[in-house]
Each structure stands twice: as C-alpha cells, then as structure tokens.
Design a protein around this nucleic acid. Structure first.
Lengths: 317, 317
DNA sequence: TGCAGCTATGTTACCGCTAACAAAGATAGG
DNA sequence: CCTATCTTTGTTAGCGGTAACATAGCTGCA
C-alpha cells in the first residue's frame, strides 16, 4: 500500500519512506501493472481515437490537436484505424470499449447500428468528429461538409466560372467527401447549371492521380473552365499538370480543392481550398473529454460546429 | 465461466447454450472487460509501437506494414508518439510497458539508459526499427543510414558532380538524418572533397522550406552543381524552385533526397532518392513479434538489415 | 440397469493492484 | 506522564475476469 501511495503521489508518506521506495523501485526496474491498477480503481487514463486512415495527412493533424490538449491531463490517446470500413470500425470500437477508456473520439457520424448502440451504452463521453451533418450520439465537433461544398460552389460561380468539372476519389464510404459533392452540386443546380464532366480514381499516389485525371478530363472536355477536386492532394497534381501543359491558371481555368493542407505550401501556386479545421477539431474534441473527466455532471456544449473559410489562393480569378 | 467460454470461443459449449449466451450478450450490449481478462490470463494482445512523429508520412507507412501483419493475428498495435525527445520517449515506453503488451516496436536505437533498462527487463520481445547502426537491445529491423548516406554520395560523385551543397533540418535528435549526413560527408572527404555549402531549417511546411532554402543556398553559392537534401519533402520544394527559376535539372544542377516517398509521385520530375523500406520494416518487425508469440523459445533472426537502393529518378545526370 | 467414457457446466482461487478502513507512531498540551 | 490529535503505515476485500480442476449429464454397450 505504501508503495502504491508513493508511486501514484497519493496520500501521506514520510519523505524517508518515499525515498526508500523510489530507490528500490528504480533499482529493481519496477514497472507497475496498470492492468491491475485499472481493474482495482476502475479508472483508465486512456482516450480511444478511431479514425479511418493514417495515410492521408488529415488525421495525423487531428491527432496533434488531441495530443496537445491531453498532454496537460493524465489522459493518453490510443489510436485505432477503421480503414473506412463500417464493420472494421465496429470491431475497433468494440476492442476499444473493452478496455474501458475514459472517453472515445470517433471520426464521422456514420456507424453500424451495433457500434452506435455500444457507444451509447458505454457510459463514457463519446465525441464524433469532422462532420456535423447527421444525428449525433453524444457530442460532436466538426464542420458541415454539405456547407463546405455549397460555399465552394458559390465562390466559384461568383467568380464567373460556368463549365465546371469534378474530380474525386471513388470512395462510397467517405461520407464527408460525398456530402461535399452533394452540397456542391446542389448550388450548381440552383443556379441552373450541372457538372460538365466528372472523373474518378481509387488508390495510388494522389498527386500522380490528380495529374492523370486532369489530363484525361481536359482532353475529353476542352471547354471546361473550372476543376473542383475532392481533396487538395489531387488538386495539387492537377495544378502541376495545368502549369506544365501551359494553361493559364486561373485565367483559362480555375482550380479548387479541399482541406487546407499545410503540406502543400510551397507549390507553384497556392491552391484554392477550404480549411477543414483539423487541429482545432482535435483540440475541441479532447477538451470535451477532459472536461467530462474533471466535472462529470456538467454537460458541456455537445455540438460544436466550426466554420471553415474559403481561401482563394492563386488558382481562382 | 460458460459465458467466458462462449465469448472467447474456447472449450466445449453446447450449441444451444452458446446461442443463448450470444443472444443475451447482444441484447444487453455486453462488452467484456479486457482489463479483468488480461489480469486473469496474464496475456494482453497489444503491441506497443513507439515512433517520433506522425506528421511526416514516413511513420504512418511503417504503421501500415505493421497493421497488415498483425491483422492476421490476435494482436493489435497501440501507437505512442515520442516527439523526437528522449525523455518523452522514456515516459511513453514506461506507460506502454505498464500495460504489459505482448511486444514492443520502437523507432531508433538511441534511448535513455532508463528506457533501455526497462525494455531489457520487460521480458517481452522488443524490436528496434528503422536504423541498424548501433547496439541493439533485443531485435532490430532497419537500414544503415550511414551506408545510405555513403551510397548516395558515391552515386553523386560517380555522375561527375563536385560542388555539393547540403540542405537539412535542424534536428540534433534525428539520429538517422545525422547518420546519413555523416556517411555522406565521409565519402566526400575520402574523395578529397568537402561540402561546398550548407543550409538548415526547422519547423514549417517542408515543401515551402525546401524552396526557400534552395533559393538561399543557390543565391549565396552560385557555383554549386548538386544539392543533397536530408529528406524528399524539402527536396521536392527545391525541385519546384529550380524548375521555376529556370535551372536545367539535372544538367546545371543535380538534386537528391531521401525516403522514396510515394506521396511525391506526380512531381514535375521524379526526385533522385533512396527508399527507406518503411512498409517492409513495419512488416518484418511485426512478424518478429508475431513469431515470438507463436513459438516463444525460437530465437528468430534478431537483426534484419534491409538494403535500400538508389533511385536516380530524373534529377541526376 | 449399471457403468465407463464422453461432453457440458460449475467451483474455487487467484491475477496485481487500490479503496476504505484500522491501527500504530509521533507530537503536543495539560 | 497521559491522553487527544495528527501523521504514517498496515489490513482486508474485491475489481471482473480466467486457469485448473471438479462435478453433473448424457450416450452407448455389456
């Protein structure tokens, strides 16, 4: 018991005893067994974070926001990757919950019924992030991708572009990309327009794919005056292609992407984009969990919608 | 006990009982407590993975290799981030070990004495990854960054470049970058040469920094005929700058980076680079752990050195 | 019908720690 | 010197599962 007290800095222990304990622990390389500790105290200083992928730079940035906040608390993030697959996500959520974490942060609002039920029953704070367009389990921090798509479309129309092509990934399970696309199209149709052409890809290096797709769509539809990309990475590939192929950007043709990737600062031109507030989303989500830990009854604001803003960069008129 | 048997698919249970248990579990949304299970069975199906950063695309790729292998086992990766700080790494390792994982995968060979001791005493397989230039605790999978630097230098000299500049990050704690740099310089000095100029950065978008640094170094040292970058990302920034500034690459000036980032496929030219075998390193490391789990006594090969090869791309003669 | 030899279920004792309470030691005031 | 009070250390039970062993139910055959 005294050892436990010393190692957790809890309760009164005399300085001499404390020193003796610490010395012994150090000498024998003692590492306490958190499993036993967690079981006994019924507290686990872990926060589960479930994201679809680590490979596209947007989720690592969310992680940074989360880490920064949790560093000031006893909590630690634990990452699970769902690969955009609902069943895999359910599995990961189950696995996470079976470790009885202090909170859960999950990307997206679309889950299997079982996953949703598990999270509801878990009794811990659950924060869904990135997206706000849909029903929320417990709390939510994100942006409206619907609106992001709509606003981008408005900006484009405002600037006089009319023959608009869309380039995106073939990912029916990326609901956020889908919502942006829908929002985008709805503004076009309200203006009596429709997409002039579309081009899709899946897999491979996004930059190279953006290049290829742009060449393909521009070869096919020579009268396009704008290309809307579902993400900045393929947009950057498109920008490189247009630059090399001698297009006047944004004169002949305008380009826009989505995400506001800092990674791409340094491209020949700054791609028009809309920031997805990734770090901020991570911060806010982590704060909600930390807050719930501090004062369990307080129901903090459960729905935080951030407003991304359109950054015209140098690829629109 | 019967419930435990059903939920873990272990031991004989009649079909009727099994169904009843599963039905009840489903109805009540039962999620077993892994903490209790782990304590009782003294097994934890977690593999700790400790990496310096999530933000530069190289570690996520290692994670992919690890995940792919562990997906075929009961094991699950848990990520910890050390931020290139030895003390933080020690903390993360301590935290990890206190959960009694089945194995540990740690990036790099440089650790605090305490961290090294903890890992030695842990009694679990520990695989150090990415680097092989140094003393190993238990097992190791990686490449020699010394040699990578040396071989890049040889390729450059072989192609007739002589006035060589180096551009890198100001990260004294990135030992792998340091080793490449040392290997690189040693070949130059064996050839009676030395670096003509150097330029360093820290923080910010690597692409933009690569651009700035390249402009700075080329403005200062107009007779350089080669630029060696400590990573592909700043190399790509440099390539963009050189292209726009009208340099003939690789005629006037050659460029090379390091990592073999697939991310950059699609750049105006393919940057000369050396693949750091990231996915393969992750795969092999995970296999070592999975192997140790399967047959505990077998001492598999404890030191796996992979051989990166120089990919000249389009930026060297 | 009785019993060997199964299969299916139940019992018990922990796993390593911590909450809650108990006791011992130290200090001080009368 | 003794008791009241505070500080420090110790005891006990139990967290929710699982290993190991024990028992109960069932089957088939003499």
């Amino acid at each position: 018991m005294t050892v436990s007290r010393v190692l957790r800095n809890r309760g009164e222990v005399s300085d001499t005893t404390r020193e003796k304990v610490l010395k012994a622990a150090r000498e024998m390389g003692y590492v306490p067994n958190k499993i036993a500790g967690a079981l006994a105290s019924n507290t686990v200083n872990l926060v589960g974070v479930i994201i679809p992928s680590l490979s596209n730079m947007v989720f690592p940035e969310v992680m940074m926001g989360i880490s920064k906040v949790l560093d000031d608390t006893p909590l630690q993030p634990v990452v699970g990757v769902s690969g955009y697959l609902p069943e895999k996500e359910e599995e990961v959520i189950f696995e996470m919950l079976s470790w009885r974490p202090t909170g859960l942060i999950v990307a997206g609002l679309e889950h299997t019924d079982a996953a949703r039920k598990m999270m509801q029953n878990s009794g811990i704070p659950v924060v869904e992030i990135m997206d706000v367009d849909g029903p929320v389990i417990d709390a939510c921090v994100g942006i409206s991708h619907q609106r992001a798509g709509r606003e981008t479309a408005k900006e484009i129309l405002k600037r006089g572009y009319r023959k608009i092509g869309f380039l995106g990934s073939k990912m029916p399970l990326d609901h956020r990309a889908r919502k942006r696309f829908e929002g985008f199209k709805s503004v076009l149709s309200e203006a009596g327009l429709s997409l002039a052409d579309e081009e899709y890809y899946s897999g491979g290096s996004a930059l190279a794919k953006g290049r290829e797709m742009t060449e393909a769509i521009l070869t096919r539809s020579k009268d396009l005056d704008f290309l809307y990309y579902s993400n900045d990475m393929i947009g950057a590939g498109g920008l490189l292609y247009c630059t090399e192929a001698g297009y006047d950007v944004p004169g002949d043709i305008g380009l826009a992407g989505f995400n506001g990737l800092e990674l791409l600062d340094g491209m020949p031109k700054q791609l028009a984009t809309m920031d997805s507030c990734r770090v901020e989303i991570g911060r806010k989500a982590a704060e909600l969990i930390a807050e719930a830990l501090r004062k369990p009854e307080t129901a903090a604001e459960r729905l935080v919608e951030l407003s991304p803003i359109f950054a015209p960069g140098g690829t629109v008129r």
